[in-house]
Amino acid sequence: MINYWPLKYETPDVRRRTVDGLRALRKRIREAMPGTTLHDTLVLGTWNIRNFDDNRFGHGPRIKESMYFLAEVVSAFDVLAVQEICRDLGPLKQLIRLLGPNYDYIVTDVAEQDGGNRERLGFLYNKAKVRFKGVAGEMVLPVKDLIGHGGKRLQPARSPFGCEFQAGWFRFLFTTVHIYFGKESRGTPEYARRVAEIDAVAANIAQRAEKEPCSYILVGDFNIDKMGDPSGNALIRNGFQAAQNNMGSNADRTKFYDQISWLPRKGTVRQTRSDRNQGVLDVLPAVMGEDRFPDYRKAVEATVRGQLDKARTERAELAAKGKDSAAADKRIDKLEALLADADGLKDYYLKIWRTFQISDHLPLWVELSIDFSAEYLTRLRNMPGIQTRDNVEIPL
């Protein structure tokens, strides 16, 4: 249960906005996703939570209600892989406090290498449902499998991160990735590097899975345009089954970057038979839709004023050094015009600002069966026995 009680200390406006958003979001979750169960099913997902939360791009930081909205989404999952967690873990700890004592996290160190963007990968999970089994590690490719790019042999830009968990009867090695992006267009060296990185990661996991006694689940932001293109086929080539993301998981539902895939061991990765056992949770319209721009206009204006103050400081520093300030002047003019343009502010709110409050990606989820007790009883019944000294047959 989310810790809603701190809201009573907020101003009436903040409290009203937050409660209205939470009500709409809870309704959206009820309509789109299955509820969590204690023993029968596992709601597993992945979410690129966009630059959480160092405000390096100047479109934030996240305001108070945004943290409640993020916590509400996370609470709909038993275990959630998260990408783009930043160096400062303060915002993540704040999120965990809102989620309450049943939730915990495991994250990587910061990716400092080229293309890593100083990001972390991690998992948020409900300890009452999911147990961390003590095994965790970042993938390091063998030298023979390094990724070729620009005459170099490279590790993945952000090391894939895997942890072993157990929920009910289901034991699984859960790995998350944030694959190198580069340039979007096919035929570029950057696109080739992206495809090669997916190929190398998937092949490495497939090789490991042959030697391990648990199922492997691979999720994350693959930067795949769509399944069926070379980047998407890299998963299929290596034997992965995918909960096909055919609905688009970026903010405007046009890209298919995020994927959930698995290598089942003896059929133990089983989607439930429900008619809604996978999907994309469309968060933004519920909490920061077009109709809610008036509620957030002051916060949007404050963000733009912060950008304007920064640009003016930059111009003054350039002038003091006798350097050309034309670029800063142009940026200042643009920001001043934006503050005076209601339609422009609304467009900025919809296309940029709210995606740095929630995310420019949407959570992707699947519901899996984790109760294998019926099958186990069948195996026990059919198991051959051995004779004891008292001529009593007991199962092997």
Results as ranks from 00 to 15, higher is better:
Glu10Asn: 07
Ile394Val: 15
Gln241Leu: 05
Asp343Phe: 02
Glu65Trp: 11
Ala76Ser: 14
Gly21Lys: 03
Val43Pro: 00
Asn233Thr: 12
Ser215Asn: 14
Ala128Tyr: 05
Thr378Ala: 12
Ala167Glu: 05
Phe132Ala: 05
Met227Gly: 10
Thr272Arg: 07
Gln278Asn: 12
Leu396Gln: 07
Gly21Ile: 08
Pro294Ala: 01
Pro363Gln: 07
Lys330Glu: 13
Gln357Tyr: 04
Pro264Ala: 11
Val201Phe: 03
Tyr216Val: 12
Tyr216Leu: 01
Phe174Arg: 03
Ile2Thr: 13
Phe172Cys: 07
Ser159Pro: 01
Ala311Asp: 11
Glu119Phe: 12
Phe77Arg: 08
Leu335Trp: 06
Lys351Cys: 00
Leu380Gly: 09
Lys346Gly: 10
Arg26Leu: 07
Gly289Ala: 07
His39Met: 13
Ser249Cys: 04
Gly267Thr: 01
Tyr180Glu: 06
Pro61Phe: 04
Gly150Pro: 00
Asp78Ser: 11
Arg305Trp: 00
His59Asp: 09
Asn117Gln: 15
Arg305Asn: 12
Ala316Tyr: 05
Lys93Asp: 10
Thr188Pro: 10
Gln241Val: 05
Arg15Val: 01
Ser66His: 08
Arg315Ile: 07
Met67Glu: 03
Tyr4Pro: 05
Leu89Pro: 05
Gln113Phe: 01
Gln387Asp: 10
Val283Trp: 03
Leu98Arg: 13
Leu338Gln: 10
Ala320His: 00
Arg120Asn: 05
Arg15Thr: 05
Pro101Thr: 06
Gly228Gln: 09
Leu25Lys: 11
His59Phe: 13
Met139Ile: 03
Tyr9Lys: 15
Gly239Ile: 10
Ala251Val: 12
Leu121Asp: 07
Ala136Tyr: 02
Phe170Val: 09
Ser159Glu: 12
Thr108Pro: 11
Arg131Pro: 01
Lys133Ala: 14
Ala32Phe: 09
Arg312Phe: 04
Arg171Thr: 15
Asp40Cys: 00
Asp309Met: 04
Ile147Val: 09
Phe222Pro: 00
Ile386Phe: 15
Leu25Glu: 07
Leu318Phe: 11
Leu80Asn: 07
Pro294Met: 03
Asn102Tyr: 14
Thr37Pro: 06
Gln83Leu: 03
Gln83Asn: 03
Arg297Tyr: 13
Lys144Trp: 09
Ile352His: 09
Met33Pro: 09
Lys330Tyr: 01
Ala76Tyr: 07
Asp78Lys: 07
Ser373His: 15
Glu197Gln: 13
Pro189His: 03
Phe132Pro: 01
Leu95Cys: 08
Arg237His: 14
Val135Phe: 13
Met33Lys: 04
Val79Arg: 08
Asn223Glu: 02
Gly267His: 08
Lys351Met: 09
Ile49His: 06
Ser66Lys: 06
His59Trp: 05
Val392Tyr: 05
Arg153Trp: 13
Ala286Thr: 08
